[in-house]
Design a protein around this nucleic acid. Structure first.
Length: 375
DNA sequence: GATTCGTGGTG
DNA sequence: TCACCAAGAAT
C-alpha cells in the first residue's frame, strides 16, 4: 500500500473523533446519521442524531410515526425534504423490504433521499463495499493534494476526482487481499481506533472525510504541520486557497413575508397553516401569510386582495406590528413582519386554531420558532 | 446542467 | 453586513 494511504490510516487511527455513529454499523443508524449530517456541521447534527436514535431507535419506530412528528424532531435543522424523505423511506423499508436495509450500492441508491454520497457511505461502512464517498471534505482534500484545478461544479471534474478515489480504493482492496494471503487481518495492520469496527473501505472513506473536515479545512489550513506537505500539489504551487475552484454562487433573491398573528377575542390561541406546494419549508406550520413583492406598510397590506379575502367586511382589530425580521436561506433573503390581529369569530379560512398550550407540538421553521419564543 | 431546497458558524 | 460553506439530493 502506498505512502499516501499509510499516512492517512496512521493519522486517522491517532486523530479520529469519537462520534456515537462511529460505534455502530447498524444500517438504520448509519443511514440516519448520514441523512442528518448532509450539508450540516457535525456539532449541529450530533444532538439531532442522538435525539432521533432515542425517539426512533428502529426503522419501524420511524415508520409508524406521523410526518408531523418526524418534522417536529427535525425542526431547526433545515433542508426539511431530508426529514420527509427519511420518513417515506422508513415506510418503504418496512413495507417493501421487510424492515431490512438493502445491502448493495445500487439498491441503496434507489431509495428516496439517498444519493451517490449516502449510498457509498452506507455500502462501505455497513457492508464493507469498495465505494468511495465524495463529499465537500473529500473534494477539497483531493483537489488540493492531487492538483485537480477544474471547477468542481462540473460533472467531468467530479468524475476526475472519483477516478482518483477509485484508484485509492483499489489499492486498499489489493492490500487487504495480500495481507489476508499472508495470514494477517486488515484490522490488525491498520487498526483504526477501537470504536471503529470496519477497517477497510468504510474506514478509508471516514478517514478521507475526517482529514478534510479537521485538517484540510477551507480557510487557514495548517499546511506547515500537514502530514502531506511533501506531496500536496496545492501547497507546492501556492494554490491552497484557490482550490477547490467553484463557480460564483447566485445572489440571494429577496422575498417579503407578512405574517398575520390572529387571535380570537377572549380566547388564547392562534391560527396556523401548514405550508404545502413546492416551496420552502414544505410541511411546516406558520401563521397565515401574505407575501408581497416588496416591503409594505399596514395601509398597503390592508389593500391587498389577500387581506380583503381574509377579512372582507368582517371586523378585525390591528393590535400591533413587529419590526422587520431578516432571515437568510441558502438562496433567499426573507424579510418578515408580524401583524398581531384580533377577530370576533373564528373561521376555517385562517387555518387551524391552536391553543397556546399546543404550540410546541407543531413543527415550525426558525422564523416562527423565534417569534413564539417570546410570545 | 442549473436551481432549489435551511440554518448557523466564521472571517 | 456579507460571502462562504458545511458528512448532498431532487427536479
Amino acid at each position: 500500500m502506498n505512502d499516501f494511504l499509510n499516512k492517512l490510516f496512521k493519522w486517522y487511527k491517532a486523530n479520529a473523533r469519537d462520534f456515537p455513529f462511529r460505534r455502530t454499523t447498524d444500517p438504520y443508524l448509519i443511514w440516519l446519521s448520514e441523512i442528518i449530517m448532509q450539508q450540516t456541521r457535525i456539532e449541529q447534527g450530533v444532538p439531532y442524531y442522538n435525539k432521533f436514535a432515542d425517539v426512533f431507535p428502529t426503522v419501524q419506530d420511524l415508520a409508524v410515526a406521523t410526518e408531523d412528528e418526524v418534522l417536529k424532531q427535525w425542526q431547526g435543522l433545515g433542508y426539511y425534504s431530508r426529514a420527509r424523505n427519511l420518513h417515506s423511506t422508513a415506510n418503504d423499508i418496512v413495507e417493501k423490504y421487510n424492515g431490512i436495509f438493502p445491502e448493495t450500492y445500487d439498491r441503496l441508491r434507489a431509495l428516496k433521499g439517498i444519493g451517490d454520497y449516502t449510498a457509498a457511505a452506507i455500502a462501505s461502512v455497513c457492508f464493507g463495499l469498495p465505494h468511495p464517498v465524495m463529499d465537500g471534505n473529500v473534494i477539497r482534500f483531493i483537489t488540493r493534494h492531487f492538483g485537480i484545478t477544474g471547477p468542481v461544479d462540473e460533472a467531468a471534474v467530479k468524475k476526475e476526482i472519483m477516478e482518483v478515489l477509485n484508484g485509492l480504493m483499489e489499492q486498499i482492496q489489493d492490500a487487504g487481499c495480500r495481507l489476508q494471503d499472508a495470514g494477517c487481518r486488515m484490522q490488525d495492520i491498520l487498526h483504526p481506533v477501537s470504536h471503529i469496527p470496519h477497517p477497510t473501505s468504510g474506514t478509508f472513506n471516514q478517514a478521507m472525510i475526517e482529514f478534510g473536515a479537521t485538517y484540510c479545512v477551507p480557510r487557514n489550513p495548517q499546511c506547515n504541520n500537514c502530514i502531506f506537505n511533501d506531496s500536496c500539489y496545492a501547497l507546492k504551487f501556492g494554490m491552497v486557497e484557490k482550490l477547490p475552484l467553484k463557480k460564483q454562487q447566485q445572489p440571494l433573491k429577496p422575498r417579503y413575508f407578512n405574517y398575520l398573528v390572529i387571535s380570537v377575542r377572549g380566547k388564547k390561541g392562534l391560527f396556523f397553516r401548514k405550508r404545502t406546494g413546492n416551496d420552502i419549508w414544505k410541511g411546516l406550520y406558520e401563521f397565515p401569510l401574505i407575501e408581497t413583492s416588496k416591503t409594505v406598510n399596514l395601509q398597503r397590506l390592508m389593500n391587498t386582495p389577500e387581506w380583503r379575502q381574509f377579512f372582507g367586511a368582517s371586523k378585525v382589530k390591528v393590535l400591533g406590528q413587529s419590526t422587520q425580521v431578516s432571515h437568510l436561506l441558502s438562496h433567499l433573503k426573507i424579510t418578515a413582519r408580524f401583524y398581531t390581529l384580533e377577530i370576533e369569530k373564528p373561521s376555517e379560512k385562517f387555518g387551524t386554531y391552536i391553543l397556546r398550550s399546543k404550540f410546541n407540538d407543531l413543527p415550525v421553521h426558525r422564523i416562527i420558532e423565534k417569534y413564539l419564543e417570546d410570545y
